[in-house]
Simulated scan of single mutants.
Amino acid sequence: MLALVLLVALPCTMVRARPSLNYLEEPYATEPTQAGSEEVRSDAIKRLLEVFGMDDPPVAVTHRRKQPPQYMLDLYNTVADVDGVTKDPYLLEGNTVRSFFDKLRSEQVEFRFNLSTVARTEKILTAELHLFKLRPQATLVLNRHHFCQVSVYQLLDTSKSNNTQERKLLSSRLIPIHSNGWEVFTITQAVRSWTVDEGSNLGLHVVVRTLGGSPMDLKLIRFASGRNHHQSKQPMLVLFTDDGRRRSTTPESADPDNAQDTAILPQFPMASHESPRSARSLDQAWEEEGASMPCQRLPLYVDFEEIGWSGWIVSPRGYNAYHCKGSCPFPLGQNMKPTNHATVQSIINALKLIKSIETPCCVPDKLYSINLLYFDDDENVVLKQYNDMVAGSCGCH
Protein backbone atom coordinates (compact mmCIF):
# COMPACT_ATOMS: atom_id res chain seq x y z
CA MET A 1 0.00 0.00 0.00
CA LEU A 2 2.84 2.34 0.86
CA ALA A 3 4.57 1.99 -2.45
CA LEU A 4 1.22 2.43 -4.17
CA VAL A 5 0.85 5.86 -2.56
CA LEU A 6 4.11 6.89 -4.14
CA LEU A 7 2.91 5.78 -7.57
CA VAL A 8 -0.57 7.30 -7.42
CA ALA A 9 0.31 10.26 -9.65
CA LEU A 10 2.13 8.23 -12.31
CA PRO A 11 0.32 7.81 -15.66
CA CYS A 12 -1.24 4.50 -16.63
CA THR A 13 -0.55 2.88 -13.24
CA MET A 14 -3.14 0.15 -12.81
CA VAL A 15 -3.15 -0.80 -9.13
CA ARG A 16 -5.42 -2.01 -6.38
CA ALA A 17 -6.78 0.36 -3.75
CA ARG A 18 -4.73 -1.20 -0.93
CA PRO A 19 -2.39 -3.90 -2.25
CA SER A 20 0.06 -5.89 -0.23
CA LEU A 21 3.73 -5.32 -0.85
CA ASN A 22 3.83 -8.63 -2.78
CA TYR A 23 3.12 -6.95 -6.10
CA LEU A 24 6.68 -5.62 -6.10
CA GLU A 25 8.22 -9.09 -6.10
CA GLU A 26 10.27 -10.48 -8.98
CA PRO A 27 8.13 -11.74 -11.89
CA TYR A 28 9.19 -15.37 -11.48
CA ALA A 29 9.33 -15.49 -7.70
CA THR A 30 6.59 -17.56 -6.09
CA GLU A 31 6.85 -15.97 -2.64
CA PRO A 32 8.79 -12.92 -1.50
CA THR A 33 11.32 -13.54 1.23
CA GLN A 34 10.79 -11.89 4.61
CA ALA A 35 14.01 -9.93 4.17
CA GLY A 36 12.82 -8.78 0.74
CA SER A 37 9.48 -7.63 2.12
CA GLU A 38 11.18 -5.68 4.90
CA GLU A 39 13.52 -4.09 2.38
CA VAL A 40 10.59 -3.05 0.20
CA ARG A 41 8.73 -1.66 3.21
CA SER A 42 11.79 0.26 4.39
CA ASP A 43 12.32 1.74 0.94
CA ALA A 44 8.63 2.62 0.64
CA ILE A 45 8.66 4.38 4.02
CA LYS A 46 11.77 6.30 3.00
CA ARG A 47 10.15 7.43 -0.24
CA LEU A 48 6.96 8.41 1.59
CA LEU A 49 9.00 10.50 4.04
CA GLU A 50 10.52 12.30 1.06
CA VAL A 51 7.01 13.17 -0.12
CA PHE A 52 6.41 14.73 3.32
CA GLY A 53 9.74 16.55 3.26
CA MET A 54 11.39 14.53 6.05
CA ASP A 55 14.59 12.52 6.38
CA ASP A 56 13.35 10.55 9.37
CA PRO A 57 9.98 10.33 11.12
CA PRO A 58 9.77 12.29 14.39
CA VAL A 59 10.23 10.22 17.52
CA ALA A 60 6.86 8.88 18.67
CA VAL A 61 5.78 10.51 21.93
CA THR A 62 2.47 8.77 22.54
CA HIS A 63 3.32 7.82 26.12
CA ARG A 64 4.12 11.39 27.13
CA ARG A 65 2.50 13.48 24.44
CA LYS A 66 1.42 16.95 25.38
CA GLN A 67 -1.90 18.35 24.33
CA PRO A 68 -1.49 20.37 21.11
CA PRO A 69 -2.03 24.12 21.60
CA GLN A 70 -5.65 25.05 21.02
CA TYR A 71 -4.50 27.72 18.57
CA MET A 72 -2.89 25.08 16.35
CA LEU A 73 -5.97 22.84 16.51
CA ASP A 74 -8.22 25.77 15.59
CA LEU A 75 -5.91 26.77 12.74
CA TYR A 76 -5.90 23.22 11.37
CA ASN A 77 -9.71 23.06 11.49
CA THR A 78 -9.88 26.41 9.72
CA VAL A 79 -7.74 25.41 6.74
CA ALA A 80 -8.58 21.67 6.46
CA ASP A 81 -11.64 19.45 6.38
CA VAL A 82 -12.03 16.27 8.45
CA ASP A 83 -9.75 14.35 6.07
CA GLY A 84 -7.06 17.02 6.04
CA VAL A 85 -7.92 18.25 2.52
CA THR A 86 -7.31 21.98 2.10
CA LYS A 87 -10.53 24.00 2.11
CA ASP A 88 -9.01 27.03 0.42
CA PRO A 89 -5.33 27.27 -0.66
CA TYR A 90 -5.31 30.99 0.08
CA LEU A 91 -6.28 30.75 3.76
CA LEU A 92 -2.82 29.83 5.04
CA GLU A 93 0.17 32.17 4.88
CA GLY A 94 3.01 30.08 3.48
CA ASN A 95 2.85 26.31 3.81
CA THR A 96 4.23 25.69 7.31
CA VAL A 97 3.15 26.89 10.77
CA ARG A 98 5.13 25.98 13.90
CA SER A 99 4.40 26.55 17.56
CA PHE A 100 7.20 26.77 20.13
CA PHE A 101 6.88 26.83 23.92
CA ASP A 102 9.05 29.05 26.10
CA LYS A 103 12.28 27.34 27.20
CA LEU A 104 13.24 29.73 30.03
CA ARG A 105 10.14 29.02 32.13
CA SER A 106 11.08 32.04 34.19
CA GLU A 107 8.87 33.80 36.71
CA GLN A 108 9.99 37.05 35.10
CA VAL A 109 8.49 38.37 31.85
CA GLU A 110 11.37 37.01 29.79
CA PHE A 111 11.03 34.30 27.16
CA ARG A 112 13.29 32.24 24.93
CA PHE A 113 12.38 29.81 22.14
CA ASN A 114 14.52 27.12 20.53
CA LEU A 115 14.26 27.53 16.74
CA SER A 116 16.80 24.87 15.78
CA THR A 117 14.16 22.88 13.86
CA VAL A 118 13.65 25.75 11.39
CA ALA A 119 15.79 25.26 8.28
CA ARG A 120 17.76 28.25 7.07
CA THR A 121 16.26 27.75 3.62
CA GLU A 122 12.77 28.49 4.93
CA LYS A 123 11.40 31.94 4.30
CA ILE A 124 10.20 33.60 7.50
CA LEU A 125 6.88 35.26 6.74
CA THR A 126 5.42 36.17 10.14
CA ALA A 127 6.38 35.48 13.76
CA GLU A 128 3.99 36.08 16.65
CA LEU A 129 4.46 36.04 20.41
CA HIS A 130 1.31 34.73 22.10
CA LEU A 131 0.92 35.65 25.77
CA PHE A 132 -2.03 34.77 27.97
CA LYS A 133 -3.06 37.74 30.13
CA LEU A 134 -4.44 36.72 33.52
CA ARG A 135 -7.15 38.58 35.40
CA PRO A 136 -5.83 41.17 37.87
CA GLN A 137 -5.94 40.25 41.53
CA ALA A 138 -9.26 41.16 43.20
CA THR A 139 -7.63 43.51 45.70
CA LEU A 140 -6.27 45.66 42.87
CA VAL A 141 -9.38 45.85 40.71
CA LEU A 142 -10.22 49.37 41.86
CA ASN A 143 -6.94 50.71 40.55
CA ARG A 144 -7.41 54.04 38.75
CA HIS A 145 -5.66 52.82 35.61
CA HIS A 146 -7.75 51.28 32.83
CA PHE A 147 -5.06 50.71 30.16
CA CYS A 148 -1.39 49.89 30.14
CA GLN A 149 1.39 49.98 27.55
CA VAL A 150 2.87 46.54 26.83
CA SER A 151 6.17 46.51 24.93
CA VAL A 152 8.14 43.50 23.65
CA TYR A 153 11.92 43.86 23.31
CA GLN A 154 14.55 41.68 21.68
CA LEU A 155 17.54 41.17 23.97
CA LEU A 156 20.84 42.00 22.23
CA ASP A 157 24.43 40.89 22.76
CA THR A 158 26.33 44.00 23.85
CA SER A 159 29.66 42.20 23.45
CA LYS A 160 29.36 42.56 19.68
CA SER A 161 30.88 45.71 18.28
CA ASN A 162 27.81 46.80 16.37
CA ASN A 163 25.47 46.55 19.39
CA THR A 164 25.51 49.45 21.84
CA GLN A 165 22.06 48.80 23.29
CA GLU A 166 20.90 45.92 25.46
CA ARG A 167 17.52 45.57 23.80
CA LYS A 168 15.54 46.50 20.69
CA LEU A 169 11.84 47.40 20.58
CA LEU A 170 9.81 44.97 18.46
CA SER A 171 6.17 45.70 19.27
CA SER A 172 4.19 47.96 21.60
CA ARG A 173 0.49 48.62 22.15
CA LEU A 174 -2.22 49.48 24.67
CA ILE A 175 -4.02 46.68 26.52
CA PRO A 176 -7.06 46.98 28.86
CA ILE A 177 -5.97 46.21 32.39
CA HIS A 178 -9.16 44.35 33.35
CA SER A 179 -9.17 42.07 30.31
CA ASN A 180 -7.97 38.48 30.19
CA GLY A 181 -7.10 36.12 27.34
CA TRP A 182 -4.54 35.82 24.58
CA GLU A 183 -2.55 38.85 23.44
CA VAL A 184 -0.51 38.60 20.22
CA PHE A 185 2.61 40.62 19.35
CA THR A 186 4.45 40.58 16.02
CA ILE A 187 8.17 39.79 16.44
CA THR A 188 9.11 38.83 12.87
CA GLN A 189 12.23 41.00 12.77
CA ALA A 190 13.77 39.25 15.78
CA VAL A 191 13.05 35.73 14.54
CA ARG A 192 14.58 36.48 11.14
CA SER A 193 17.79 37.58 12.83
CA TRP A 194 17.82 34.48 15.06
CA THR A 195 17.51 32.11 12.11
CA VAL A 196 20.47 33.82 10.42
CA ASP A 197 22.61 33.79 13.60
CA GLU A 198 21.43 31.23 16.15
CA GLY A 199 23.84 32.62 18.74
CA SER A 200 22.04 35.98 18.72
CA ASN A 201 18.91 34.41 20.22
CA LEU A 202 19.09 35.78 23.77
CA GLY A 203 15.33 35.88 24.15
CA LEU A 204 12.60 38.44 24.62
CA HIS A 205 11.74 40.84 27.44
CA VAL A 206 8.26 42.25 28.07
CA VAL A 207 7.88 45.62 29.78
CA VAL A 208 4.57 46.96 31.15
CA ARG A 209 4.13 50.68 31.86
CA THR A 210 1.35 53.05 32.73
CA LEU A 211 0.18 55.54 30.11
CA GLY A 212 2.42 58.06 31.84
CA GLY A 213 5.48 55.87 31.27
CA SER A 214 6.07 54.69 34.83
CA PRO A 215 6.49 50.97 35.64
CA MET A 216 3.23 49.11 36.19
CA ASP A 217 2.64 46.94 39.25
CA LEU A 218 3.24 43.39 37.95
CA LYS A 219 0.60 42.10 40.36
CA LEU A 220 -1.94 44.08 38.39
CA ILE A 221 -0.73 43.04 34.94
CA ARG A 222 0.13 39.35 34.90
CA PHE A 223 0.96 37.01 32.05
CA ALA A 224 0.88 33.24 32.42
CA SER A 225 4.30 31.61 32.67
CA GLY A 226 5.46 28.15 31.69
CA ARG A 227 6.44 27.41 35.27
CA ASN A 228 3.33 28.25 37.28
CA HIS A 229 0.41 27.88 34.90
CA HIS A 230 -1.38 25.25 32.88
CA GLN A 231 0.08 24.15 29.57
CA SER A 232 -2.89 25.60 27.70
CA LYS A 233 -1.83 29.11 28.83
CA GLN A 234 1.93 28.85 28.30
CA PRO A 235 3.78 31.57 26.37
CA MET A 236 4.12 30.51 22.75
CA LEU A 237 5.87 31.58 19.58
CA VAL A 238 3.92 30.93 16.37
CA LEU A 239 5.97 30.99 13.19
CA PHE A 240 4.59 31.12 9.63
CA THR A 241 7.10 30.08 6.95
CA ASP A 242 7.37 28.84 3.39
CA ASP A 243 9.82 26.00 2.80
CA GLY A 244 10.06 26.63 -0.94
CA ARG A 245 8.30 23.47 -2.08
CA ARG A 246 6.63 23.99 -5.43
CA ARG A 247 3.00 25.00 -5.62
CA SER A 248 0.55 22.77 -7.44
CA THR A 249 0.87 23.19 -11.20
CA THR A 250 -2.70 22.26 -12.03
CA PRO A 251 -4.73 25.22 -13.34
CA GLU A 252 -7.58 24.53 -10.92
CA SER A 253 -5.44 24.85 -7.80
CA ALA A 254 -3.89 28.09 -9.06
CA ASP A 255 -7.22 29.74 -9.83
CA PRO A 256 -8.89 31.60 -6.91
CA ASP A 257 -12.27 31.19 -8.63
CA ASN A 258 -11.97 27.44 -8.11
CA ALA A 259 -10.93 27.69 -4.46
CA GLN A 260 -14.42 26.77 -3.29
CA ASP A 261 -14.11 23.39 -5.00
CA THR A 262 -11.62 22.26 -2.36
CA ALA A 263 -14.11 22.92 0.43
CA ILE A 264 -16.38 20.16 -0.85
CA LEU A 265 -13.79 17.66 -2.03
CA PRO A 266 -13.27 14.82 -2.02
CA GLN A 267 -16.75 13.69 -3.08
CA PHE A 268 -17.26 10.04 -3.88
CA PRO A 269 -19.89 7.43 -3.05
CA MET A 270 -17.47 5.89 -0.55
CA ALA A 271 -16.23 8.32 2.09
CA SER A 272 -12.54 8.30 3.02
CA HIS A 273 -13.15 6.90 6.50
CA GLU A 274 -14.84 3.71 5.28
CA SER A 275 -13.31 0.30 5.73
CA PRO A 276 -10.22 -0.53 3.65
CA ARG A 277 -11.92 -3.83 2.81
CA SER A 278 -14.74 -1.90 1.17
CA ALA A 279 -12.19 -0.12 -0.99
CA ARG A 280 -10.62 -3.40 -2.03
CA SER A 281 -14.01 -4.99 -2.77
CA LEU A 282 -15.03 -2.09 -4.99
CA ASP A 283 -11.75 -2.22 -6.90
CA GLN A 284 -11.89 -6.02 -7.28
CA ALA A 285 -15.45 -5.83 -8.57
CA TRP A 286 -14.22 -3.36 -11.15
CA GLU A 287 -11.52 -5.78 -12.30
CA GLU A 288 -13.99 -8.66 -12.53
CA GLU A 289 -15.91 -6.68 -15.16
CA GLY A 290 -12.91 -7.02 -17.44
CA ALA A 291 -11.60 -3.46 -17.11
CA SER A 292 -14.46 -2.26 -19.30
CA MET A 293 -15.41 0.75 -17.22
CA PRO A 294 -14.42 4.19 -18.50
CA CYS A 295 -11.81 6.37 -16.83
CA GLN A 296 -12.97 7.33 -13.34
CA ARG A 297 -11.83 8.11 -9.81
CA LEU A 298 -11.66 5.30 -7.23
CA PRO A 299 -10.82 5.29 -3.49
CA LEU A 300 -7.27 4.99 -2.18
CA TYR A 301 -7.22 5.41 1.59
CA VAL A 302 -3.88 6.14 3.24
CA ASP A 303 -3.99 4.98 6.88
CA PHE A 304 -1.26 6.59 9.00
CA GLU A 305 -1.82 4.12 11.82
CA GLU A 306 -1.22 1.20 9.47
CA ILE A 307 1.97 2.85 8.26
CA GLY A 308 3.10 3.25 11.88
CA TRP A 309 2.90 7.05 12.06
CA SER A 310 0.01 7.49 14.49
CA GLY A 311 2.44 8.14 17.34
CA TRP A 312 3.40 11.60 16.08
CA ILE A 313 0.61 12.66 13.71
CA VAL A 314 -2.21 14.53 15.46
CA SER A 315 -4.54 14.97 12.45
CA PRO A 316 -5.74 13.52 10.22
CA ARG A 317 -5.59 9.82 11.06
CA GLY A 318 -5.60 9.12 7.35
CA TYR A 319 -6.93 10.55 4.13
CA ASN A 320 -8.38 9.45 0.81
CA ALA A 321 -5.82 10.12 -1.90
CA TYR A 322 -8.02 8.50 -4.59
CA HIS A 323 -6.59 7.03 -7.79
CA CYS A 324 -7.60 7.00 -11.43
CA LYS A 325 -8.51 3.82 -13.24
CA GLY A 326 -10.32 2.84 -16.42
CA SER A 327 -10.08 2.85 -20.16
CA CYS A 328 -9.90 5.72 -22.60
CA PRO A 329 -11.51 4.18 -25.72
CA PHE A 330 -12.03 5.89 -29.03
CA PRO A 331 -13.86 8.20 -29.50
CA LEU A 332 -13.04 10.22 -26.39
CA GLY A 333 -16.07 12.08 -25.11
CA GLN A 334 -15.90 15.38 -23.25
CA ASN A 335 -16.96 13.55 -20.08
CA MET A 336 -13.48 11.99 -20.10
CA LYS A 337 -11.92 15.48 -20.09
CA PRO A 338 -9.39 14.63 -22.81
CA THR A 339 -6.57 16.94 -23.75
CA ASN A 340 -6.08 17.73 -27.44
CA HIS A 341 -2.98 15.55 -27.36
CA ALA A 342 -4.98 12.63 -25.93
CA THR A 343 -7.62 13.06 -28.62
CA VAL A 344 -5.01 12.94 -31.38
CA GLN A 345 -3.31 9.94 -29.77
CA SER A 346 -6.65 8.15 -29.54
CA ILE A 347 -7.28 8.76 -33.25
CA ILE A 348 -3.83 7.50 -34.25
CA ASN A 349 -4.38 4.38 -32.15
CA ALA A 350 -7.84 3.75 -33.61
CA LEU A 351 -6.60 4.09 -37.19
CA LYS A 352 -3.61 1.81 -36.44
CA LEU A 353 -1.35 4.30 -38.18
CA ILE A 354 1.50 3.46 -35.80
CA LYS A 355 1.56 0.07 -34.07
CA SER A 356 3.38 1.21 -30.93
CA ILE A 357 0.90 3.96 -30.03
CA GLU A 358 -1.31 2.98 -27.10
CA THR A 359 -4.62 4.49 -26.03
CA PRO A 360 -4.42 7.57 -23.72
CA CYS A 361 -3.99 7.04 -19.99
CA CYS A 362 -6.50 7.61 -17.21
CA VAL A 363 -4.73 9.98 -14.80
CA PRO A 364 -5.56 12.74 -12.30
CA ASP A 365 -6.35 16.03 -14.01
CA LYS A 366 -7.07 17.94 -10.81
CA LEU A 367 -5.00 17.66 -7.62
CA TYR A 368 -5.52 19.07 -4.14
CA SER A 369 -3.33 19.59 -1.11
CA ILE A 370 -3.67 18.08 2.35
CA ASN A 371 -2.64 19.42 5.76
CA LEU A 372 -0.76 17.50 8.42
CA LEU A 373 -0.73 18.47 12.10
CA TYR A 374 2.06 16.68 13.96
CA PHE A 375 4.67 16.73 16.75
CA ASP A 376 8.31 17.16 15.76
CA ASP A 377 11.29 15.73 17.66
CA ASP A 378 11.23 18.64 20.14
CA GLU A 379 7.50 18.14 20.76
CA ASN A 380 6.68 21.36 18.96
CA VAL A 381 3.42 21.16 17.02
CA VAL A 382 3.72 21.75 13.28
CA LEU A 383 1.02 22.37 10.66
CA LYS A 384 2.28 21.64 7.16
CA GLN A 385 0.51 21.81 3.82
CA TYR A 386 1.46 19.35 1.05
CA ASN A 387 0.51 19.94 -2.56
CA ASP A 388 -0.76 17.46 -5.15
CA MET A 389 -1.78 14.79 -2.63
CA VAL A 390 -5.43 14.12 -3.55
CA ALA A 391 -6.77 13.28 -6.99
CA GLY A 392 -9.77 15.58 -7.32
CA SER A 393 -10.90 14.21 -10.66
CA CYS A 394 -9.63 12.04 -13.49
CA GLY A 395 -9.31 12.41 -17.24
CA CYS A 396 -7.79 10.85 -20.34
CA HIS A 397 -4.35 12.28 -21.08
Rank of each mutant, 00 (worst) to 15 (best):
P269N: 08
L125M: 13
A224H: 10
L300H: 00
N77C: 01
C328L: 01
D83F: 15
P69D: 15
L202P: 00
I264W: 08
G318C: 13
R246Q: 08
L21H: 01
A285Y: 03
L211A: 15
R317I: 13
D157C: 09
L298R: 08
Y71M: 11
I175K: 03
L7G: 01
L383Q: 06
E31L: 07
E252Y: 08
T30N: 07
F100T: 04
D74K: 13
P235V: 00
P19L: 05
P256T: 04
Y301G: 12
Y28I: 10
I348W: 00
K352I: 02
V118Q: 10
N335D: 12
Q137P: 06
D257T: 02
M216P: 05
P269F: 08
L156Q: 07
S327M: 10
T343I: 05
D257Y: 04
N258S: 04
R246I: 06
R105L: 14
L204R: 03
S106H: 05
L21F: 01
V97I: 13
T96N: 14
A271S: 07
F113T: 04
D55P: 00
L170E: 14
N77R: 09
V152G: 07
E379Q: 14
E122C: 11
P176F: 13
P57A: 12
S179W: 14
S346C: 00
E110T: 01
R41M: 07
N162D: 15
R192L: 13
P329H: 04
R277I: 11
L92W: 03
W309P: 06
W286E: 08
Q108V: 06
T188R: 01
L383D: 06
W182S: 01
A263V: 10
L351D: 08
L373R: 11
F111Q: 06
A224R: 00
V141R: 07
S179L: 08
A279V: 10
D257P: 00
P19S: 03
T188Q: 09
A342I: 02
L353C: 08
G333K: 05
Q34Y: 02
T139Y: 03
D197A: 09
R41S: 10
S200R: 01
R222T: 03
H178M: 12
R144N: 11
S327F: 03
P32E: 02
N228A: 05
M293C: 04
D83G: 15
P235L: 02
S214Y: 10
A263W: 03
P69M: 09
T86E: 15
T121S: 11
P176E: 09
F330R: 01
V196Q: 03
E110V: 01
M72L: 13
G181C: 11
D377G: 01
P269V: 06
R112Q: 12
D283V: 10
R247S: 11
I221W: 06
T13V: 15
S278M: 07
R105I: 06
E289S: 03
M270Y: 07
R112V: 05
N349L: 02
P299A: 05
K168P: 06
M293D: 10
V238M: 12
T30L: 09
D88K: 08
G326P: 04
P27N: 03
G308C: 04
V191G: 12
A291D: 14
N163Q: 12
C362I: 09
